[in-house]
């Protein structure tokens, strides 16, 4: 069953997925929660990726792959040729910092796809990450949401600049497409339409 929805020029359709997501192996180290004091900035308590995990990540030898940010940074030498062939994309978890990607990859438009993994659908950081990638960092290629992606968040994801959506496997992507158009004239400007309604529609005087 097809679970990928692709937006092309504003038109959504089911598509076949020629990208393979490369996963980090599970960690043996017990997660230590940052109790809000450890680091000035990251108060949200997610575990970080270990060196072992990065080294033990299995990268398929051929085909189009989307690799974790940490692997993309640490193992960039072995990926360089495939990056040049447009066969490598990067994925970030919602707690990871876009700055780390930008510092490493000066021109992010060399990447044909960037994906954001959302572990729980209620994690709205994904909307800010998409917005920043598009509006701050000028990313122009495919921006994908995967993980706990459900139809009732699609409208917001679309407005935040996402162009492809891997609907969670137990749900129908065909049904979900309808929710991309839940609202026809949103009030505020966002990535897909930067002008707020008062800038694009004559509401009288």
């Amino acid at each position: 069953m097809n679970s990928l929805i692709q937006l092309k020029n504003g038109v959504a359709s089911l598509a076949s997925d020629d990208w393979t997501i490369v996963q980090l192996p599970a960690t043996q180290v017990e997660a230590r929660k940052q109790a809000g004091k450890v680091v000035l900035f990251k108060l949200t308590g997610e575990e970080s990726v270990t060196t072992e995990q990065i080294e033990n990540t299995i990268i398929p030898a051929t085909g189009k792959i989307i690799v974790p940010l940490s692997v993309f940074i640490a193992r960039h030498r072995e990926l360089a040729n495939r990056v040049a062939e447009n066969e490598v994309g990067v994925w970030l978890a919602t707690h990871e910092l876009l700055e780390h990607l930008i510092q490493h990859q000066t021109d992010i438009n060399e990447l044909p796809i960037i994906a954001i993994f959302v572990e729980r659908f209620a994690d709205g950081r994904i909307f800010s990450l998409g917005t920043l990638l598009r509006s701050r960092y000028g990313y122009k290629n495919d921006l994908r949401a995967f993980g706990d992606v459900l139809r009732d968040q699609l409208f917001f994801l679309k407005r935040g600049g996402f162009t492809s959506f891997v609907i969670r496997a137990d749900r129908s992507a065909a049904d979900a497409i309808a929710s991309l158009n839940d609202f026809s004239q949103p009030y505020q400007g966002a990535v897909d339409e930067p002008r707020p309604v008062f800038q694009r529609y004559n509401r009288g005087t």
């Binding site: 209620a122 994690d123 709205g124 909307f127 935040g160 707020p196 309604v197």
Partner: peptide, 14 residues
Amino acid sequence: RQWSTFHPEFALLP
């Protein structure tokens, strides 16, 4: 009110 209604970036805050 209008700006905050279905603001797509702030639909699921902490």
